[in-house]
């Protein structure tokens, strides 16, 4: 459990300094935005996240950690950027490397499998697997119970596994689109 007691975590809620928050959490917010709006728009989205946080600093009551609060703002900023750019949320880019620990999945196949997920499932998978948030943190960001996050994550992985490991029926002249590396 990464979340600590709220009273201990936020003893100085009134003294939150946005500059300090930016220095501490800008990288994670940037990466979060990069996986959702793309690398080129991530800078603007991350900056807008902190500007919005600065305007709403007085509304922060310390009920969650500053990072999860910032990620919640960033999530809305990324959606706004995608909406303004008239595009759907881009899929994350994966490094093309072979793990020393075991078999990896073809990146393109994984991207296609991610694209087939619902937005809720994709958000949970991204937040947990890519951004590294715990179940509790994701529950705070999404505003749902932890059990819901567990369930969504399991069903999201089940769908990914099905999309990746179950071969689609082949059509003449078209080989299988899925292959396990």
């Amino acid at each position: 459990m990464m979340l600590v007691d709220q009273q201990q975590a936020m003893p100085h809620v009134e003294k939150l300094d946005i500059s300090q928050l930016a220095k501490q959490h800008y990288d994670r917010v940037f990466r979060f935005c990069s996986t959702r709006v793309g690398y080129h728009h991530a800078g603007d989205a991350a900056q807008d996240t902190f500007v919005t946080a600065q305007r709403n600093l007085s509304k922060f009551r310390g009920e969650s950690q500053p990072l999860t609060w910032l990620i919640g703002i960033a999530l809305n900023e990324c959606r706004r950027v995608n909406r303004n750019n008239h595009r759907t949320e881009p899929l994350p880019e994966f490094r093309d490397e072979t793990s020393q620990e075991g078999q990896l999945i073809n990146r393109e196949v994984l991207r296609q499998a991610l694209a087939k997920l619902s937005e809720e499932h994709r958000d949970v998978v991204t937040l947990h697997e890519i951004d590294g948030f715990t179940y509790e943190e994701i529950a705070q960001i999404a505003g749902v119970p932890v059990g819901t996050i567990k369930s969504r994550l399991f069903h999201a992985f089940t769908n990914l596994r099905k999309a990746i490991y179950t071969p689609e029926p082949t059509t003449p002249g078209n080989g299988s689109s899925l292959e396990v590396k």
């Binding site: 930016a22 990466r31 991530a42 800078g43 994350p92 994966f94 490397e97 990896l104 596994r161």
Partner: peptide, 20 residues
């Protein structure tokens, strides 16, 4: 395997902190 592959997602080097 899916989880391991997902963790290889790259976000790139952060930029724009000075602007922020």
């Amino acid at each position: 395997a899916i989880s391991t592959t997902l963790k290889t997602a790259e976000a790139g080097e952060p930029y724009g902190l000075d602007k922020l």
